[in-house]
Amino acid sequence: MLNNPDQIILWQYGIFKINATLAFTWAVMALLVGGSFLITRRLSVDAPISRFQNLLEVIVVEVNKQIGELSQRQPERYLPLIGTLFLFIFVSNVLAVVPGFIPPTGSLSTTTALALTVFIAVPVYGIYRVGLWRYLKQYCQPNVFMLPFNIIGELSRTLALAVRLYGNIMSGSVVAGILLSITPLFFPIAMQVLGLLTGTIQAYIFSILAMVYIASATPKSERNL
């Protein structure tokens, strides 16, 4: 009942293996990249523009807007990471309604990987922005005794990010599984619809939190548009 896609091994050679998480991740990647490629190979600058191009432009503009509002900075630098986080999680969660599809975000490995990516991205952006010395100095603010607490805070933030997404997605699957055993006909469908909503919200929350972490890792004086 608790479908952990990591445990569905499709191919294995030593430590190298292809499980359902990786396979469904590639499927989502193929869908995103293929769709983008098909839409953006014939972009029109002037009106009229196609519906799909319009959809992509709306997504990009809205993500940019959210990034700009949160970080008070030029959003172009953060768009690939934050936008990709949102799109990947959103598509994975939405595809959960497809029978047989197990969302990769339902795997703690995936959410951990995403959280670790954000965990690495935070200092990378911070160092890139203000330099290594000034970035490291932040951990000693307001004084050097706060260094361990700051490091613990950084780690716990990453852990919280990973578990939040995993918990939400997995809880949807678990609830659906339990309800399926109790009332097998109609109630699971309603839960699936609810799952779409929570999946979308989770994609949004994960992306927003990632942006907040990245933005907070940079001194406020450097936050200028």
Partner: peptide
């Protein structure tokens, strides 16, 4: 639920 670190790396 255990974390599969290979999968984590691959997913990253």
């Amino acid at each position: 639920m255990a974390i599969d670190w290979f999968t984590v790396g691959a997913q990253m």
